[in-house]
Computed example of a mutant assay.
Amino acid sequence: MTAPATLGTDEARTRLHELTVIDVRTPGEYAGGHLPGALNIPLDRIRKALPDIRDAAGRGDVLVVCASGARSENACRLLAEHGVDTATLSGGTGAWAADGHDLHRPRGAARATWGMERQVRLTAGTVVLLGLLLGVLVHPAFQLLSAGIAAGLVLSAVTDTCGMAAVLAGLPHNRPRAADLEATLAALRAR
């Protein structure tokens, strides 16, 4: 399967008024800042939203975004398997912000949530360090924790997926509000 089409941040900004933007990050990440007008449909809810996304793609171009571009590429591939052509934002919201473009935050978003990539790095580093320390201080078998995380990181890189991110996405701090998929789909239909 071919890689999805990508738009650079400047081209996306120029065309923002004509694009339907779907942000596939967790509600917590979305609340931390998203492209203007973006609708939050978390990656794990894309299949349920497929008919409405297909309809939106029939009315105009759809841009799928995430923090770095990896999850949005996965979403674009999934959508392509179901006959929906989409594009992804090169570098994601990180590149958007780095290029000086504004990120919008929903009203009432009191605190910023760490991005998923940062959460994964913290968790992986903590477990590796814990495995090494316990392996030295308690029993060498604890070093298997570190080996397990290393194997998971290699698998993540090879498959371009991340099991740890999937687990972390379900934690309460990543879902400060329930993703109101029905309201989002209604907004998508209204475009």
Rank of each mutant, 00 (worst) to 15 (best):
L78F: 13
L133T: 13
D23P: 10
W96T: 05
H101N: 08
L153V: 11
D61I: 08
P172L: 07
E81K: 00
G152Q: 04
S146Q: 08
G83Q: 04
L103H: 06
G32R: 03
G60K: 10
W114S: 11
I46R: 01
L63F: 03
L171S: 09
R77F: 02
L39N: 02
K48D: 11
I22M: 05
A87W: 02
A179E: 04
N174W: 01
L16M: 10
G94F: 05
G131T: 11
A95T: 06
C76F: 05
L132Y: 03
A183P: 07
A151W: 09
A183N: 08
R15W: 00
D44T: 15
R77I: 06
A110P: 01
L129R: 00
R71V: 02
L7E: 02
L50D: 00
D52I: 03
S72M: 03
T20D: 08
V21D: 05
T9C: 11
R13K: 12
G33Y: 06
A109E: 04
R107M: 08
V138Y: 09
R25F: 08
R107A: 10
L35V: 15
G148D: 05
L133Q: 04
G148C: 09
I46A: 05
R177H: 12
A190S: 14
W96G: 02
G108D: 07
A70N: 15
L43E: 04
G37Y: 02
R47L: 14
R54Y: 00
L145A: 14
